[in-house]
Amino acid sequence: MFEAKLTEGLILKKIVESIKDIVTDVNIDISPSGISLQAMDSSHVALVSLNLSMDGFEHYRADTNMVLGVSIANLAKVMKLADNNDQITLQADQEATHLKIIFENPKTERTTEFNLNLITIDSEHLAIPETEYSSVVTINSGEFSKICKELFSLSETVQITTNTDYVQFSVEGEVGSGQVRLGHNDSEKKEDQTILEVSESVQQQFAIRYLNMFNKASTLSSFTRLCLHQEQPLVVEFKIDNLGVLKYFLAPKISD
């Protein structure tokens, strides 16, 4: 038996919105300590990894490990039934054929229930190597979103360069070439901060289209953390306060 109640249901709604353009069918792993999922996009360029700790739920109970196969597109449709102020409860029996989703608004006394049919998904789990990222950039999530969005109108690809002084996002396209450079900024206004932790400089290129999809999660977190290593995919990380973390992995563009 699995049951989890999230007081701030909007968070779950935002998570689903943040992954639905990247992955279609997903196995949700339920364990006594929390909820997680890992899934790749169909082209195997991007991977979504979500970890939610039981501590962030108002109520959490999972007797055993369970795998719930869910169509994210259908889950997103169901989530549309939720009001932004609703509490959300997820329920599934052992050997479940459906996931029961309950939306409750204690103020308006409105309750919505939906039994989402589960599906069997033959997905492979990837082992992501423990990596010590040589460059970690923490940047306001709204600002990073805006940079990616505007650069995408100029080029399909962005080159990210890090060094101890700045992180640089540069593009080169038919329109011309240019870059946005952000220096280390630990100003008093926390939201303006850009924190650079660079032990080794990195220069890699990425498809901006994917970054724009990841940035849908910027509503979940004030800051985006970019973890880079010259020989590894980029990690774009959004911490969800008191609940867990949503990470996206993106394979770099490489010379043919």
């Binding site: 789990h125 082992a127 394979a251 490489i254 043919d256």
Partner: peptide, 14 residues
């Protein structure tokens, strides 16, 4: 020219 690499080149199957 740059081509898009795959995550399979970096991560192994469990």
């Amino acid at each position: 020219a740059k081509g898009q690499s795959s995550l399979a080149a970096f991560f192994t199957k469990k």
